[in-house]
Write a protein that binds this DNA or RNA. Structure first.
Lengths: 154, 154
DNA sequence: TGCAGTTGGTTTCAAATGTAACTATAAAGA
DNA sequence: TCTTTATAGTTACATTTGAAACCAACTGCA
């Protein structure tokens, strides 16, 4: 028969990845474990999704942002932001009103209720981060920050 | 009126998180960027999802695993693995047959076609990893591995 | 003006994912 | 052996997510 099967030549190895040493994989596992741990905290307490919390966090930091700006700052896409905001506004955690110079643009802020949640969740998140950092020595922490900066190209 | 509003006392700051310096957030962004970059490669070429590729990668490394073992090794849940396998078997990339000592258990292997894909994708993935590591000095790479080991508790 | 292109944001539809229930086989104990 | 319990894997259903289409408002420019 034509088109003979191309069996792997005996001399050539397949060289499979070793996932447990593969950096992208390790990052993924670590990141998911950490983020999910934090998310469990506030999901249980406030029925808040991770995207919703991120939106709240950025609104705590910068008041009066538009949805677009929230999307930019959270690296989430605008559809996700739109949905998160719909729930947050509905739940009375974020206020939204129209910008007077541009009727498409919304002006977003945490409400009192939103701030109250923020003031509980933010310290919890920080504690989780601290628990993680506690696994490292001072020297390792310094390197980690430097390495992240480099990996993220700044 | 009763139930007076509890406005934040003037002296107390809300202390919002600075996401751009918050470790869990940075990890998440970095991990997503990297993994998505790799996934784009093989999705375009082979219409392969990230979960499918992970299953293939682990089967390349360990032949004859059961679905359960694949799930354990990829940190994916068994439903995700089951679905990925269904597609992979359907596409002729993985072979599945029943273990003779245990009729519930499947014995999984890459087919020729599966290996062929593996042998293209694995080097691409490695190249991506290398591109990432190239941003670091030798010293930083060493620290990174050490730090990841620590953060993952081993 | 008024039309073309852009931008902010939402909606719609399909695909991906998670949870729980289910089937079939195996193992353990009375 | 018969019954219970555990395990491998799939199916069903509900929820989440993403891509593209969409609408409304703004901008630039003839």
């Amino acid at each position: 028969m034509s088109n003979p099967r191309k069996a792997t030549p005996p001399g050539i190895k397949h060289a499979p990845l070793e996932l447990e040493h593969f950096l992208p994989y390790r990052l993924s596992i670590l990141s998911n474990t950490v983020s999910q741990g934090i998310a469990d905290d506030y999901q249980r307490l406030y029925d808040l999704s991770m995207t919703e919390w991120r939106v709240m966090a950025v609104l705590a930091r910068f008041e009066g942002l538009s949805a677009r700006e929230v999307a930019d700052r959270t690296a989430m896409d605008k559809v996700a932001v739109s949905r998160a905001l719909a729930r947050l506004v509905e739940a009375g955690r974020v206020s939204r009103h129209m910008a007077d110079n541009d009727k498409r643009r919304s002006v977003l802020d945490l409400t009192e209720a939103g701030w109250a949640i923020h003031d509980v969740v933010a310290p919890m998140a920080r504690a989780r981060e601290q628990a993680l950092l506690d696994k490292l020595s001072e020297e390792e922490r310094t390197w980690l920050v430097r390495i992240l900066d480099r990996l993220q190209d700044r």
